[in-house]
Design a protein around this nucleic acid. Structure first.
Length: 602
RNA sequence: GGGGACGUAGUUCAGUUGGUUAGAACGCUGCCCUGUCACGGCAGAGGCCGCGGGUUCGAGUCCCGUCGUCCCCGCCA
């Protein structure tokens, strides 16, 4: 193939087939850069050697598909191109076949400037010819294969589950598929194979995995597509650590396949600790954690600054930002309004002038060095007493508000000064297990407790009493439900949630309590998950698992900014496929067969 | 559902305070060229300035609307 020939191949006959990447016409001497999946090879056509072939070569244009038949030759020393792997050799052509012509594409795979994404997506087949995209897709293949091989070696079976299944109106919006045979009924495309994989455990396939497409009809983001691929696995009789070891194992294999070595085991951190140190449940460990600066101030200091002494005072350190101009310091202020309503912003310079002792203490406690940026986030004394005070969680809602906005500001600052702090280095992979998530989250809109992970997650053994006492107080924000921890865990890489899993409930009585705590009557639970609840009653083993986003893993490995760069045929922010122009209206006949009437777009 | 950025040649972009015939680079077409690899030289073609209104003597430029792409919030168990 084009990219594989080396000096050691000199003298060999070769037939190369590929696309004309570039043509350099020197009159009776003509060079063609011939491209295939493996790379680029220079092909030389000499009119003196073969006039007819040269004439044919003159008609070649970019992206023509050709076969070049000839001999591999070592290049003269002064014509070696050290910038390409095949730069020591070239193919001297004896015959040439034009296998297909090409219209002039709207952009060329060899273009250096990146074409706008709309055009790239419309002509995705051209875009995918670019070496970056070829690399990304190859990386995707290698990663998926490494994971398959690893999990197979650990005794996991890859088992397929249905794409056409039933809608379970929980969580994300379903994509629906109308049934023709039973008019008026619908299949749903799975948001994940959750219940099927749990049922496979009940069936005795004690180690299951699947690299599987999942579908969610929600708004898109750079890291969210309506259809995406999960590495889904489930095992019987596990402790969380067993699941973590498996994940660490296949990630090691996957990263190795992509050319990176990673260290295991990954560090572990409680959800509460993640919130206190980073203000977020998916901390980016490449950046410093918060420093609690409250004890760096005297009571009087805090009063002077109108800071609420009962709430955290957090110092955010961003390394090596350097001296900021007045304008740059002013630019930080708006972040405080946009990032979740932090109560107080303080310019550290002002603090240092007015409260030198406090500033010195903070600097020391942060471990700050010359040029580091420190920003303080605190609660306002004027805000008055917080009403929704501690339910039963360690971190109160008022504290959480401070931690969360500080967390967002920390990331916004890191983003803004990324070119200065150098914390984001390619190949620097900081994995983390975040564990012991809360089982329930208060939904202010619905005024009730919701499952934080999903309703099949097992609560902590130690928190069963809290579940018992809260089971009938679904609409009480002070319920002990708030303190129930789940046997749930996330694997996080550089601030991205790669995957999420849990030990599941395997006992029907506990499952029923969870549904009750979620405000679901037995009848409701039965109508939604009846088949599953029934299955639970037939000898369900303890089981648990996890699912990781393959697209996100590949995105990070490829150094890409968007999932679209690692998905061959992705969708736009409006969930449109610009290449094949899906979705489209369908014929009246199709609709009639499905018993559906729709108002068609004009 | 909300906020923001962008839309000018095939592509990437420039276009000043609203002012004559909208430019550059790459690509493309033709001719020339035997060692290029971002080849080079000469000549040339190529524009619904996203679309629709409005303001104005005059709009790529200002205003309103609309469509599309991207980013973010909500949403994503």
């Amino acid at each position: 193939m084009c990219g594989t020939l080396r000096a050691s191949d000199a003298g060999k006959p070769a037939i190369l087939m590929g696309w004309v990447n570039k043509r350099r016409d020197h009159g009776s001497l003509l060079f063609i850069d011939l491209r295939d999946r493996s790379g680029i090879m220079q092909v030389v056509v000499n009119a003196e050697r073969n006039k007819a072939v040269h004439e044919k070569a003159e008609t070649l244009r970019n992206e023509y598909v050709i076969a070049a038949i000839g001999t591999v030759r070592l290049r003269d020393a002064n014509t070696i191109n050290p910038n390409m792997p095949t730069g020591e050799v070239e193919l001297v052509v004896d015959d040439l076949r034009i296998l297909n012509e090409s219209k002039l594409p709207p952009f060329l795979p060899s273009d250096t400037a990146l074409t706008n994404e709309e055009t790239r997506l419309k002509y995705r087949y051209i875009d995918l010819r670019r070496d970056v995209m070829q690399f990304n897709i190859e990386t995707r293949h290698k990663v998926a294969k490494a994971i398959r091989d690893y999990l197979s070696s650990q005794g996991f079976f890859e088992i397929e589950t249905p794409f056409m299944t039933r809608s379970t109106p929980e969580g994300a919006r379903d994509y629906l598929v109308p049934s023709r045979v039973q008019t008026g009924t619908f299949y749903a495309l799975p948001q994940s194979p959750q219940l099927f994989k749990q049922i496979l455990m009940i069936s005795g396939f004690d180690r299951y995995f699947q690299i599987v497409r999942c579908f969610r009809d929600e708004d898109l983001r750079a890291d969210r597509q309506p259809e995406f691929t999960q590495i889904d696995l489930e095992m019987s009789f596990p402790r969380p650590e067993n699941v973590w070891e498996i994940v660490e194992g296949f990630l090691t294999a996957a990263f190795h396949a992509a050319g990176y070595e990673i260290k295991t085991p990954f560090p572990r951190m409680d959800y509460d600790e993640a919130i206190r140190l980073f203000g977020i449940d998916k901390p980016d460990l490449r950046l410093p954690a918060f420093t609690d600066a409250r004890d760096c101030f005297t009571e009087q200091n805090l009063q002077d600054l109108a800071i609420n002494a009962n709430l955290p005072v957090l110092a955010i350190r961003t390394p090596k930002v350097g001296e900021l101009s007045r304008k740059e310091r002013d630019d930080i202020k708006p972040m405080f309004h946009s990032k979740g309503g932090a109560k107080i912003f303080e310019d550290f310079k002002r603090i240092a002038n007015k409260f030198p002792d406090a500033a010195a203490a903070i600097t020391k406690k942060c471990g700050a060095e010359e040029g580091d940026l420190i920003v303080l986030v605190a609660g306002s004394a004027q805000a008055g007493p917080q009403t929704a005070m501690p339910a039963h969680r360690k971190v109160t809602p008022a504290e959480l508000a401070i931690y969360a906005s500080a967390g967002l500001i920390r990331l916004a600052l890191a983003q803004k000064y990324a070119d200065r702090h150098q914390c984001f280095q390619r190949g620097d992979f900081r994995f983390l297990w975040v564990t012991n998530f809360p089982m329930f989250e208060w939904d202010e809109g619905e005024k009730q407790w919701m499952a934080a992970h999903h309703p099949f997650t097992s609560p902590h053994e130690a928190d069963m009493k809290l579940l018992e006492s809260g089971v009938d107080s679904v609409s009480d924000p002070q319920s002990t439900l708030s303190a129930v921890r789940a046997l749930a865990y996330d694997v996080v890489l550089n601030g991205t949630e790669l995957g999420s899993g849990s030990i599941r409930i395997h006992r029907q009585d506990i499952q029923r309590k969870i549904f009750r705590a979620l405000g679901m009557t037995d009848e409701e639970a039965k109508s939604r998950f009846g088949f599953f609840l029934e299955a639970l009653e037939y000898g369900t083993p303890p089981h648990g698992g996890i699912a990781l986003g393959l697209d996100r893993i590949v995105m990070i490995l490829a150094g890409a900014e968007s999932l679209r760069e690692v998905i061959p045929f992705p969708k736009t922010a409006r969930a449109v496929d610009l290449m094949c122009d899906a979705p489209t209206p369908v014929s009246d006949r199709q609709l009639r067969e499905l018993g559906i009437s729709v108002k068609k777009p004009s």
